[in-house]
């Protein structure tokens, strides 16, 4: 990726001067420098899609909020990662996610190890002001080792991307659109019948919630291992 000469730029994040390589994203630079920007669809080692909108930041001179995970830094940029307005939008965005499906942390396998739950804590979401949508969605336990519970899916597409970009199977994709979007395997068949699935389990490990989990895990027992991902990614890219 970073072949050849890469220029160094300087920018301000929350008032602090920081240096960065010109091909880095705002999110990367912010995290390297200890600034916290919440994310959900972002996952180190996977491509970024800018879908969850939690990493939106204010950039001086831009009348629109910019997606930190896909916006590259520029010389002289002045980035604000936290403001009352951003905090409020983030809280509402997480609130939207909670209202969308049937998230019940208390009886979830990922309770205590859930990215969505942590986000709620981080953005200070204490209650939901909008009505729950209560969609009636199914659970697919046909796979020998894993379970897909649509009730907890936030449509971050990490599973879709890891399966396509790292495992190369492209078993997962999305069907439908809008609020009716669902993750699917193959032709929306039962996961256990999938011809393309290699049962590698990467999708399960990258899933931020309890939407994908291992069979046999009881409530609060599902912890996800993700350290393999940056390693695999760098191997694929042929990096040192």
């Amino acid at each position: 990726m970073n072949r050849g000469q890469v220029r160094i730029v300087t920018l301000k994040i929350d008032g602090k001067d920081v240096g960065a390589r010109e091909n880095e994203t705002i999110l990367e630079v912010a995290r390297e420098n200890g600034f916290d920007i919440p994310t959900l669809c972002h996952m180190e080692g996977l491509s970024d899609i800018g879908a969850c909108r939690l990493c939106l930041v204010e950039v001086k001179g831009s009348n629109k909020l910019l997606t930190a995970c896909v916006t590259t830094v520029q010389e002289g940029m002045e980035v604000t990662t936290h403001s009352p307005r951003l905090d409020s939008y983030r809280r509402m965005t997480v609130e939207m996610l909670f209202s969308e499906r049937n998230h019940v942390c208390a009886v979830c396998v990922s309770n205590g190890h859930c990215d969505l739950q942590n986000l709620a804590v981080d953005v200070g979401l204490t209650h939901i002001t909008v009505p729950y949508l209560y969609p009636k969605v199914s659970i697919d336990a046909s796979h020998e080792r894993f379970v897909l519970d649509h009730n907890r899916c936030v449509l971050c597409t990490r599973c879709v991307r890891v399966c396509d970009e790292i495992e190369g199977a492209h078993t997962w994709d999305l069907m439908g659109r809008g609020v009716k979007t669902r993750v699917i395997t193959d032709l929306a068949e039962a996961w256990g019948d999938s011809e393309s699935c290699t049962s590698c389990g990467k999708c399960v490990q990258v899933c931020p919630t309890g939407a994908l989990f291992e069979k046999g895990k009881s409530v609060a027992e599902m912890t996800k291992r993700r350290t393999f991902l940056p390693y695999l990614t760098s191997m694929r890219n042929g990096d040192e």
Partner: peptide
Amino acid sequence: EESLRYVARSLRAPMSHVYGVSTF
């Protein structure tokens, strides 16, 4: 389903991709 499978194989496209596009 048969035609989606056929199209997926012919275009060497993942089945989930074909299904995803068809329903989008």
